[in-house]
Amino acid sequence: MKIAVTGGSGGGGHAVILDLIANNYACVNLDIRAPKETLCPFVEVDLTDYRAVFKALEGIDAVVHFGGNPNPDNDHFGAADRFENNTLALFNVFNAAQARGIKRVVWASSETIFGFPFETSAPQSIPLTEASIKQPQNGYALSKVISEDLAEQMAALYGMTIVGLRLSNVLYDDETAEASFQKIPGYWADTGSRRFNLWSYIDSRDAARVVRLSLEADLDGAEVFTVAAPDTLMSQPSRELLATHFPTAEIAPEFGGHDSPLSSEKAKRLLGFEAEHTWQRVLGVTRD
């Protein structure tokens, strides 16, 4: 199969291409900028240009859509820019895919729909699942909510399988990366420093693997999956963190230890996914 990966020059897209190539898929990287490392053919594409997207998807069997502006916005100008860019790019990819007869698209939704950065919102119940209420707080998160709705409608309209992955904060085993595993011990002194996404994370390699599993799984229609490592990246127990920062949240009886407040049980059940790379394994240390 030949897979088009939009945003393949970014960190997450790069990890996806690495994993797909290692598992005998052919890839093409569709991005507005060239990659630092060329792993597969690269096509420069502005995803907001529909004709360019349609042309780039010729001869493609499936699409992984990671392209877009990944930064949550901090003001109304940023909100407008990110919403316009992300929703238009996503529609163009979905629409060009259906026009090309492509029946499977896997795309990056986001954990932000749950209430990121949890400054004026709070989770009602823990753990959060695909059935939890959506509380988008900015233009970026709103674009993801609208995109999930769009995926549902277009999958039904065109008989496609469209899989949205609500990925937690993707971390890299690279001390030079902005989102680096090596920074984790520095978070422990301030429990509020990572409350913005409920102290959760996912290794880039696990994020890439869940993409591949989503391409291969026996699924129909539109599906969304929350994807996170099974634990938090904090040294404090999860119930202690929640009691301090979200005391009104209703916590499931079985939730405890250092469990992540983001549940990946649906991904485990339908995709066979379990995270393999915890921060302790990556860093070779323990919470003690």
Rank of each mutant, 00 (worst) to 15 (best):
Ala62Glu: 01
Gly78Val: 06
Leu47Trp: 00
Leu47Gly: 06
Ile60Tyr: 05
Val53Cys: 00
Asn29Cys: 15
Asp31Lys: 04
Val63Lys: 06
Ala89Lys: 09
Ser110Gly: 03
Gly67Phe: 11
Ala97Gln: 08
Val53Leu: 03
Ala97Lys: 06
Asn69Asp: 07
Val93Asp: 10
Asn23Phe: 07
Asp49Arg: 02
Val105Ser: 08
Leu90Ala: 12
Asn71Cys: 06
Lys103Asn: 11
Ile60Leu: 00
Asn92Cys: 07
Leu57His: 06
Cys40Tyr: 04
Asn29Tyr: 11
Thr38Ala: 15
Pro70Glu: 00
Thr112Gln: 04
Arg104Ser: 10
Ala108Arg: 02
Val43Met: 09
Arg82Trp: 01
Asp81Gly: 11
Asn95Phe: 10
Val45Lys: 05
Ala99Pro: 00
Ile102Pro: 04
Arg82Val: 15
Ala52Asp: 02
Asp61Met: 12
Val63Pro: 10
Asn29Lys: 14
Arg104His: 05
Phe77Arg: 11
Glu37Pro: 03
Asn74Gln: 14
Glu44Val: 05
Arg82Asn: 07
Ser110Gln: 09
Tyr25Asp: 01
Ala26Gln: 13
Asn23Thr: 13
Tyr25Ala: 09
Ala56Leu: 04
Cys27Lys: 10
Ala79His: 10
Ser110Trp: 10
His76Ile: 15
Val64Lys: 11
Asp81Trp: 14
Val43His: 06
Arg51Asn: 15
Leu57Pro: 02
Val53Gly: 03
Arg104Thr: 07
Asp73Leu: 02
Ala79Val: 01
Asn85Cys: 15
Glu44Met: 10
Leu47Gln: 03
Asn29Pro: 13
Val105Ala: 00
Ala62Thr: 00
Gly59Tyr: 04
Leu20Ile: 06
Glu37Thr: 14
Ala79Met: 06
Trp107Lys: 07
Lys36Pro: 01
His76Asp: 09
Leu57Phe: 05
Leu88Asp: 00
Pro70Ile: 11
Phe66Ser: 13
Arg33Tyr: 07
Cys27Glu: 12
Asp61Ala: 13
Val63Cys: 06
Gln98Cys: 08
Arg82Cys: 13
Asn29His: 14
Ala22Phe: 03
Val43Lys: 15
Asn29Val: 11
Pro41Ser: 00
Asn29Asp: 12
Val53Arg: 08
Ala80Ile: 08
Lys55Asn: 14
Leu57Ser: 01
Glu84Ser: 13
Val105Phe: 04
Leu57Asp: 00
Ala22Trp: 00
Pro70Lys: 02
Asn86Ala: 10
Ile21Gln: 14
